[in-house]
Design a protein around this nucleic acid. Sequence first.
RNA 1: GGAGAGAUGGCCGAGUGGUCGAAGGCGCACGCCUGGAAAGUGUGUAGGCGGGGAACCGUCUCGAGGGUUCGAAUCCCUCUCUCUCCGCCA
Length: 442
Amino acid sequence: MFDIKWIRANAEAFDAAVSRRKNVSVRSSDLLAIDDRRREIIVRLNEAQEKRNALSKQIGQAKAQKDEAKAQELMAEVSRLKDFIPTGEAEERAVEAELRAALSVIPNLALDDVPQGDDESDNVEYFGANGTAETAARQRPAKPSFSFAPKEHYEIGVAEKDMDFEVAAKLSGSRFVVLKGQIARLERAIGQFMLDLHTTEHGYLEVQPPLLVRDDALFGTNQLPKFEEDLFFTPHGDSRLALIPTAEVPLTNMVRESILSEEELPLRFAALTPCFRSEAGSAGRDTRGMLRQHQFDKVEMVSITTAETSIDEHERMLACAETVLQRLGLHYRVMMLCTGDMGFGARKTYDLEVWLPGQDTYREISSVSVCGDFQARRMEARYRPSGEKQAPRYVHTLNGSGTAVGRCLIAVLENYQQEDGSVLIPEALQPYMGGLTSIGGK
RNA sequence: GGAGAGAUGGCCGAGUGGUCGAAGGCGCACGCCUGGAAAGUGUGUAGGCGGGGAACCGUCUCGAGGGUUCGAAUCCCUCUCUCUCCGCCA
């Protein structure tokens, strides 16, 4: 969410930057018009309150001096002028709500190095801050080669038996899956491996958050008010709770409505949780297999930083996510999303796309975004700079998947499949699989 | 689910209708003291909004929202959360 004072001071820059984003027609002049009305009512209200307060203080003094006649006279005077105050207060609340509503549906502005574009076809491959295609290729696992036609994950022998969409449909309908036996264990192993990697090697604090959250938390991380239809809700008393669409929501909101000290930053949280998405807008897309589900596991990373360090933290977080795929020996590429493909709250986003030989294509497995102070302003999350006395500033927030567990399971199955329908277990996962080196063999 | 108690600044905690944005303490900042530190000591130390070039001024905020009143941290109502006891329960 934007600071109206910043928009007032930087109206042209705001208009130029906001016009880079897709489907956004708002102009600074619309917002400033609301703000002008807001300031006008505040001035009038403050003047009335000032008079009322001054007179009330005199009444107190008159009563203390037992000057009842004077007190009565003053009280009559206050009664006359205070008619305006209740209506003025109501007017101020209304116009402030109007301004907030207008501001809360404006997406974040892209950083200067984000490519301009309409959709994913305008994303550009990214090789690291100082990297090239060559340096990236040395660091990233190679694309596997097959002596047979690799299958899609749900066609592979071991999955045909233990990845059960039919029974899931009986329980819950489409876009659910029941995993069984060694496939279920493999999914669990992948999640454990990733979470352990981030907590033991990358400095993230392991967190087990609630999976049900209130509307305020969803507003903080931008799911509300614009993307309500993507969520599952459950009634709760007279209100409701949402199933988290990503652990970004609880992890980021852990710092909401607080003032941290600069010394505590950066805060780094990681969690392995189920995620729930209605997929309202994607009917008919990716219906086969478990690529796009209503429920899936994901390891999420969240960093809370100062304003100065968020860009560096973004590169660091990308590297943390990449390490997962490198350890698993999975080929991937990194895309910098263009302005048209970025999420609502992001200033810049990198997607990790893992190679799926069965589909013969790259598919998103992780998304790493830096949001600046956009979410912090929605959450009222600030920090007090150290040293000389300074006013609190908004923190910067970042989030990234590290990575999606379900999609990683797909990638392991497809990349490590054998002709006989069995699947080799990557070395990094073997300790989590009781030492097994393959599953689904005869 | 029933009964009761509570929510005050970065933290702890006093304050039951007026001069209270709020005692005191802790923490923090800057000074004094010291060879240096600790201790001691002095001063300062909430946030939002509006006005102003600035110094500064005004206003709002004592969990949230309403109400009573000339005036509310204090009284009333609703809600949220926390704690204690009882019940139920993985």
